[in-house]
Nucleic acid binder design. Structure first.
Lengths: 160, 160
DNA sequence: TGGCTGAGTCTGTCAACTGGACTTAGACTG
DNA sequence: CAGTCTAAGTCCAGTTGACAGACTCAGCCA
């Protein structure tokens, strides 16, 4: 019953690499706000309820990582302000946000339903994530998904 | 240009609720291991490179939250050991894992490719996540996804 | 009896988060 | 022009959490 997975190292794991960028709660909440259209410092701070210092830190890092970019804009009769807008790299996190939203709706949702949903711009109906294999089968049961070593898999040398 | 999103509170956000459970790097790495078939304490510890205390803490919490369950099993001639197995609630995190994997492959992958992939058990080909709206349109551009207040949305009272 | 091993617990150090006060730069007010 | 308002931070002290490494405990085996 030894699992094959044990023989492979996790070096270079791209899940870990992704978590390195967005793997903490606060960073992810910032992305949630930006992807739902909230883009100014104090608005994000209020909606995520995080200390200014942490928000400042996270925004700087997300800009450095290329998920957000700063955009200065000026409303008439006001001084210039900063907005944080998602880049393509940031927008591509939508599936992660959707996956978490679906899981949360299923397992952590209250009776009144989620306060947010994501819809198809063209038709207005809700967006769901469908796991599908490249042969074209839709997969409705997670047990139909199984792990395999990928192209970059390296044998694991047990450190004994 | 004022965004509508500003007028809605994030109370009850199911993304935040999901992050409350799996929103830190270490917890998520544990789920990655369990979902790839690595289920014993010391194996997880070695592959995730985390301190025992942190792993112990995370495993206990994941069991308490119902994503994992402990399973005692005995190899012949060895004393009983614990395994951590995913529950249905844990298995349903597959889409989140897949979404992070895809993002990581795209933006953080090395030239040699990911060390892990997930395939359809029946046909063996790679599983991808396809965002699709409930009307049936596949969505290939993240910009076609837009946020809307959900059924549980509450007006936001600016705290001035 | 004593040793091995998987799965932890204990302890001290050090980095990160937290809440609250302070700072800065434009624009507007009198 | 001096004073005020606001968005977007920075600074500071206290507490929490991660980390590394040593120690513990329970079965099994020689």
């Amino acid at each position: 019953m030894t699992t094959e997975a044990l023989h492979w190292s996790t070096d270079g794991c791209t899940i870990a690499a992704a978590l390195e960028v967005v793997g903490d709660r606060q960073t992810f909440l910032v992305m949630r706000e930006v992807l739902t259209g909230v883009r100014r410092f104090d608005d994000i701070r209020e909606l995520t309820d995080m200390p200014r210092q942490v928000l400042s830190n996270r925004l700087t890092r997300l800009v450095d990582e290329g998920l957000l970019r700063r955009h200065t804009y000026t409303e008439p009769g006001r001084r210039p302000r900063q907005e944080y807008r998602p880049t393509d790299k940031g927008l591509d996190l939508y599936p992660v946000v959707l996956a978490l939203l679906e899981w949360g709706n299923h397992y952590a949702g209250g009776p009144e339903g989620a306060p947010i949903r994501f819809v198809h711009r063209d038709c207005g109906s809700d967006v769901r994530l469908v796991p599908r294999c490249e042969t074209g089968h839709d997969i409705d049961q997670p047990r139909q998904i199984v792990p395999r070593p990928g192209p970059g898999a390296q044998p694991r040398f047990s450190s004994a």
